[in-house]
Amino acid sequence: MKTKIIRILIIGFGNIGGGVAEVISRKKENIAKKQGLVLKIVGIADLKGVIINKNGLSEEDIRKFKTGEKIEKTRDLNIIKEIEHEVMVEATPTNIENGEPGLTHIIAALESNRHVVTSNKGPLALEYKRLMDLAAERGKEIRFGATVGGSLPIISLVKDNLASNGIISIKGILNGTCNYILTRMAEQGLPYEHVLKEAQELGIAESDPSKDVEGIDTAVKLVILANSVFDRDVSYKDVQITGIKDITSEALEMADEAGYAIKLLGEVNKGGCLKVAPRLVPKDNPLNVRGTLNVVTIKTDLAGNITILGKGAGPIETASAILSDILGIYKHNNENDFII
């Protein structure tokens, strides 16, 4: 088998960036053997600085970068242009006001003829069309499976495996924090505030939980699905959003007695529907999943309903989606990228 080297630059080295380095380290031998792709991380950058080795960073280098022992204190993003690489992984924090800094990173990468794989929702939710157009113009790919549902392969399932189908709607739970809170409230009869605090202590909810509990995070993911799966041209402001803060344990109990769970669902179709709201889900419906799990039901015209569930977040789970996207780029084409 011909061996091909894929050089990767990681921008943003927190949970997810670190997770990507970890899964590459775990899987690279296997990938080289099975797919003939040699993955090399040639650079990492975060707010603290950068580390670069054009022949590939060793695991020791990466560890030292993480601990701060070996770091070049520069924040010069020219590295995206100057360091030769094939795929830029963008994993900086999501910003839904203006998409930055991710938006600038992604544009710089595409303009420098790199493929882009990202878990960062902001740029996709705000500038989907512009980024797709730029990628097409450059003959490069931008893949973003990790932005929606973490490990769940929603976008690749729809685009690849379900390619023969028209997609009628997608509906599901896209925020593990809300699902955890509602599940605990329902099962233990505990009030919202109490469970929220518990979730924060467990690291399931952030110290500022508003993006999750107000339904904003779900809305942003829904926008990405609307634009990518349904070819709509919508932004976060077009979503009708209701969060979970007003749900009481009494209401959950009442729903339970009537055979329902309350879940925060996002729902999008090719027509006008684009909304996030708590809904009554019959207990025997596949969307009724517990804890931090995410789940979506994809309604198709040929295959009927298809439901997938799994972990919607977590460094390794999300990194698995990023790695799958990297490999996906090299599955069919892009021969001319390779260095032999």
Binding site: T242, I247, P278, R279, L280, P282
Partner: peptide, 12 residues
């Protein structure tokens, strides 16, 4: 319900 500040949750 919106006017009265009441949350409406409907079944799917």
């Amino acid at each position: 319900a919106k006017k009265k500040g009441i949350l409406v949750i409907s079944s799917i």
